[in-house]
Amino acid sequence: MTREGAVNAVILALLAAVALAGAAGDRPFLVTLAAKVAILGLAGVGLNIALGFGGLVSFGHAAFFGLGGYVAGILASHAQNYEPVAEWPITIAGTQEMLIIWPAALAACALAAAVIGALSLRTSGIFFIMITLAFAQMLYYFAISWPAYGGEDGLPIYLRNAFPGLDTMDGLQFFALCLAALVLGVGLSWRLRDSRFGLALEAARQNPERVAAVGIRVFRVRLAAFVISAAITGLAGALYADLNRFVSPAMLSWQTSGELIVLVILGGVGRLWGPVAGAGLFVFLEHVLGGVSEYWQALLGLMLLGVVLFARGGLLGLLAGARRHG
């Protein structure tokens, strides 16, 4: 096992241990925190495909995180109120089944990302950062001013959506579900990274002209990566809505986009488990520093500044050494 493999195993074990310890010690708060780490980690794993592998600095992934959340929230609210989502041309009923909600969230985010990506990927550099931000802001303001689904107040989900054979209101079972989704997400990004597609994406990050010269269409590769990245982040959003039993425009806000980037960077950009380590560190800091001072975000800011200026590579870079190339 390589050093990075060992670090990854420790991260996974630590996450499961915290949840189990919380459940055994009757501290449901810890289980919730572990689930939050798994979900934010999954969102980060999604973003990492665009940001880390593809070098596409999306400052708008909150759009997909929030969209996934709203798909879960809207379908659940219709099921709760026994109102169909749509009656024309076909009747679509609301649902509280995760097995229906998840594909719906994945599809909605993939579709949104196909449109946003096709327009945004025509630009690069600062313009790509700004246009992805602009699209996320569009959705954010739309969610705030659209009154049908709670507007600014957000949308409550009274009972967590259901998964066959599980009691999702039980913290530990819900955590297990999130962890399974996370492991699947990391597995997918691992297979993706080592595939021909992943190589092309990585190569396009380093030198798009050469990739184009050997006959690969950079735009298509990047667009596919952007769509996959968005879909995974959207799934995390659906789970996050269930965790909090609440969806609000805050999930779509630019701060959320910033935090997703922050946790990918804190953990180690381009590393398979980097976002998970980053999510763990982020949630840990939130609660440890939050206990020290109510102004914990200032401390987080100073730490982040330190990481960016002096410790590039993030937590995984620190623990497992520099990223291997090739």
Partner: peptide, 30 residues
């Protein structure tokens, strides 16, 4: 801070100045 960022890529600039927002906002709140 900013002086160290001129040669960095946009991602580092976004992150470092995002960090500055956190510091300034919380500092002002304090």
């Amino acid at each position: 801070v900013i002086r160290r960022l001129y040669d960095r890529d946009h991602l580092d600039q976004v992150l470092a100045t995002f960090a500055l927002i956190l510091v300034f906002s919380e500092g002002t709140r304090w």
